[in-house]
């Protein structure tokens, strides 16, 4: 009883005194509030701006490039998720099997996630090269195509190609996280189901799927949150081109806020994604809470 009471009376102060706690919060939150303030002004880099209310946000509503950016971001961050989840699930199921060299294999498949995006994107940049792409070369030599594939120059191919690279980078995270989920399924459950005469598909459907649902959800939400704010990959591959067909919030913010130095407008662009992200983040936290 006494111990229990002490557990309850324990407070954060035992670890951080209140001021330091406040300091940390300020250090972390300061940029955020500054971002909100900037979005309500016509500030430029090195020039304090005037308060202009919601004008930046209203302006963006009629900006066709912004519309395209929003659409692209939606495709880039959301439409890729099912692909990542499916491929990740497949990968996890394979890795969960008993095999030799399982550690090196697992480390190898993690590589797309480990390697700095700034560098791996350069690799993709070469692979998607309009003239020297090894993929074009292969297909051309097999006689399947007569012209090089315009990976990053055709409207539909361009967004597909950046999504492809994005999926490639995301699959290992899904794979390893789902693998963790699979390993938490007690073996007895499978055995019991097998004894009951359930088919492989049945066991997969009724034992495996329910037990990894949570992991897939968490991985999906994290992946959405991370790729929504992505920048590096697209910046190296296309910088949003051609004709803005691959622009996403991150690259458009950069273009307006840093290159054209309209930091107020840039802040507004990135804050437009905030409510959407916040919804996903809150969903994630609610889910976690429910699980407790």
């Amino acid at each position: 009883m006494a111990a229990n009471a002490r557990l309850k009376s324990f407070s954060m102060r035992d670890f951080f005194d209140r001021e330091r706690n406040l300091g940390i919060m300020l250090f972390m939150a300061y940029p955020f509030f500054l971002g909100i303030w900037l979005s309500l002004t016509d500030s430029m880099i090195g020039r304090a701006g005037q308060f202009i209310g919601l004008r930046n946000f209203v302006d963006l509503l009629t900006d066709t490039i912004f519309h395209q950016t929003a659409k692209n971001t939606f495709i880039y961050a959301l439409v890729t998720v099912p692909f990542k989840a499916m491929l990740g699930l497949g990968l996890a199921l394979i890795l969960n099997r008993h095999m030799r060299f399982s550690s090196p294999v697992r480390a190898a498949v993690m590589m797309p996630w480990i390697v700095p995006t700034a560098l791996s994107s350069l690799g993709w940049f070469m692979i998607f090269d309009p003239v020297f792409s090894p993929i074009s070369w292969l297909f051309r030599n097999m006689g399947l195509i007569s012209k090089n594939i315009n990976f990053l120059g055709d409207p539909i191919l361009a967004i597909s190609s950046v999504c492809w690279a994005n999926i490639w980078r995301g699959v290992p995270f899904f794979g390893i996280t789902i693998l963790a989920g699979l390993q938490s399924v007690p073996q007895e459950l499978h055995e019991a189901a097998a004894i009951d005469g359930a088919s492989v598909w049945h066991r997969f459907r009724h034992v495996t799927i329910p037990s990894i649902k949570g992991v897939v959800l968490i991985a999906s939400l994290l992946s959405i949150i991370w790729t929504f704010a992505d920048f590096q990959l697209i910046y190296i591959l296309t910088k949003g081109g051609p004709a803005n067909e691959t622009h996403i919030f991150g690259t458009y913010t950069y273009q307006i806020g840093l290159q054209a130095t309209e930091i107020g407008m840039g802040a507004a662009i990135s804050l437009y994604m905030f409510p959407i992200l916040a919804v996903f983040a809150i969903l994630l936290l609610i889910y976690l809470r429910k699980e407790q």
Binding site: P130, V131, K147, N148, N150, F151, L152, G153, D154, A158, T238, K239, G241, P242, A243
Partner: peptide, 9 residues
């Protein structure tokens, strides 16, 4: 022109 130029940098 080489029509893949739309993506060239």
């Amino acid at each position: 022109y080489d029509e893949t130029g739309t993506s060239w940098d």
